[in-house]
Design a protein around this nucleic acid. Structure first.
Length: 321
DNA sequence: AATCCCCCCAACCGCACCCGA
DNA sequence: GTCGGGTGCGGTTGGGGGGAT
């Protein structure tokens, strides 16, 4: 099957950014035909455009189509993209069919400029959705070469699987404290729970892991139902193990390289032993686990968007912000 | 204020696929 | 079964904007 010649190679066909006049001509032409395009190849001539048909199609589908949603991606959309990408890979057009008003190009760009970097900072391979070895995140030679960082911190970072992990935790903690409103009383209620001596204390209500998971799971259910997306069979059930994973990580602080949010979780005595035991039997590195691991770190959103935490905490506990 | 640098995203490129002749 | 036109898709590019110096 040979490659078909493209009109884009014709001399004199305009390339580059579209002008308002060109946009108007294209939109008016398509509207005149009831929103239908018979042949993209013939369209430029019919619409009086000195453009390649391919360029017209791209301009229409990625920018001019009336049902395109503009603006930033929501946290829900971001989670859905990550979930779909974990299952589908770089099938941007397929992923786009699950997000109303978003184009494959837009999703692809958003993935490459935002999500991909975010996953890398989390120590998650954006291609395989598997956790990267600590050395690949930021460790070893990179740590040794880091200038101006106290040796004690570097040592601690190395023991935790990389400087990135420590920075992520520090940032997450800072934003978490901001998220509770900065009130002294709230902070006072939060801080003791991070101390090993507070094992017997009840977790602060606003950080109740189970309610966050429940809320998160509800959001996923709504989102998936809305998007007509059928996840792998045990995907949602694995989301429920978020709380268990948190507890597990707290019991084993050195496992903090697994998930920053998990490492940050307040100690709680409310998890029964059998639940913890079940966590130990949890299968690892299956698709669903990778997916749940990627999603079970909601604090990562807060690294750049503190509203994520505020919203999640508010929705979980109906606290006034 | 000027310059540099980095990031984002619209648009391009070329291969793959579909389908009718 | 083969060919070729047309379209879809994913990777890549480069110009513009904004922040840093």
């Amino acid at each position: 099957m040979g490659r078909s010649p493209c009109c884009c190679h014709d001399a004199g066909v305009k390339k580059g950014p579209w002008t308002e006049e060109e946009d108007r001509a294209l939109v008016e032409h398509i509207q005149r035909h009831g929103g239908h395009v018979g042949s993209w190849r013939n369209l430029p001539k019919a619409a009086g455009l000195n453009r390649c048909g391919k360029s017209c199609r791209l301009r229409w589908t990625n920018y001019l189509r009336p049902d395109i949603k503009r603006g930033n991606f929501t946290a829900d959309e971001e989670r859905l993209i990550i979930a779909l990408h974990a299952e589908l890979g770089n099938k941007w057009s397929t992923i786009a069919t699950h997000l109303d008003g978003r184009t494959d190009n837009e999703i692809k760009n958003y993935w490459n400029t935002h999500i991909r970097k975010k996953l890398l900072r989390m120590g998650v391979d954006p291609v395989t959705h598997q956790r990267l070895p600590p050395d690949d995140v930021l460790g070893g030679a990179a740590l040794a070469a880091a200038p101006g960082i106290p040796e004690a911190l570097l040592s601690a970072a190395a023991s935790l699987g990389g400087l990135n992990s420590v920075l992520i935790q520090a940032q997450a903690l800072q934003l978490l404290l901001q998220a509770v409103g900065g009130g002294a009383a709230a902070a006072a209620g939060l801080m003791p729970s991070f101390s090993p001596a507070a094992d017997n204390a009840m977790p602060p209500p606003m950080l109740n892991a189970s309610s966050i998971v429940q809320n998160f799971q509800d959001q996923q259910m709504n989102l998936l139902a809305h998007a007509n997306y059928r996840p792998a069979d045990d995907y949602l059930s694995n989301l429920a193990s978020f709380a268990v994973a948190e507890h597990d990580a707290v019991r084993q602080p050195n496992a903090s390289s697994l998930a920053p949010a998990a490492a940050l979780a307040p100690a709680s005595s409310s998890f029964p032993q059998e639940v913890a035991a079940a966590a130990d039997r949890r299968p690892v590195q299956g698709f669903s686990d990778l997916l749940s691991e990627a999603i079970e770190v909601p604090s990562m959103y807060s690294l750049e968007d503190e509203h994520f935490w505020k919203d999640m905490l508010a929705e979980s506990n109906h606290l006034p912000l």
